[in-house]
Amino acid sequence: MSVEIGLLYSRIRRDDKLLLSELRDRGHEVRKVDVRDTTFAVGAAGDTGEATVDDTDDTERATDAVSALAGCDVVLDRCLATSRSVYTTRFAAAYDVPIVNDPETARVCADKVETSLALAAAGVPTPETRVAFDTESALAAVESFGYPCVLKPVVGSWGRLLAKLEGRAAAEAVLEHKATLGHYEHKVFYVQNFVEKPGRDLRVLVCGTEPVAAMSRSGDHWLTNAKRGAETAAFELDDRAAELATAAAEAVGGGLLGVDLMEVGGDGESEYTVHEVNHTVEFEALNDAVETDVPATVVDWLETTHGAGADDTGQVIVE
């Protein structure tokens, strides 16, 4: 059965092209909505009028989100910018348009403090973390962990602006820089115990709450993000890793997610800590690393949850 799928975007990445191809090849109708050209009206649920296009220079490309999304069986949030993702998912939900991911999932995943709280509340092992709002208390948090430890921005990705603090002088300098030069979010000091990992971490793609593919990301640098040039390879999940990926997804509400884990068990012991859950997951590197056809698997899941026989509440069905 053909499904009408909206795709919120501001940049079509290779991941998005793979998804678009898969959806179109299966005969689904795809409606691309560039959120930069779109306005989102508050209190507009049920208004499915024609797209509003102003004829002034500044707004001539502005489209009304209600009409742009009306009639979609499901909308995929593929916004590159977290700030846009958090709000657009909220608007889609307010317009009663099913959205992947759910706005609550986006809210929790967009902010590392929220993610850490959700993981801890669910009993999912995650690196020991302290949050402070002043440089002195942040320094106290750093010293409580000892060196090295890690300072992360609460919003951010691709490993940017993460600092591995090797000593007190470096800690004082980085904290002062963040307090002086940063946006107010950088004055929320998110301090984490440094986890000794075996030169790699793991990315698990989850659909609903089911892990569907996984890869390792290896490198000499302490940050092993694929975007930073880490080498990727397929990773076969053991029962514990799969269990934790599922538990982490459940902790943030389920959906199409990228769960990041580090191996902490040492030789021959399967134990992990979950350090991140991504809600607008990129899978280009994963698709290249694994035999699983990732876009096909994602579309399979979308069809199951929002295609023929899907829950008419429009919510993602979490198995």
């Binding site: 590159l80 910018a81 977290t82 975007k227």
Partner: peptide, 11 residues
């Protein structure tokens, strides 16, 4: 020209 990288980009 493509937009410059923003701080909140990526996943």
């Amino acid at each position: 020209r493509a937009p410059e990288l923003e701080e909140d980009w990526g996943e």
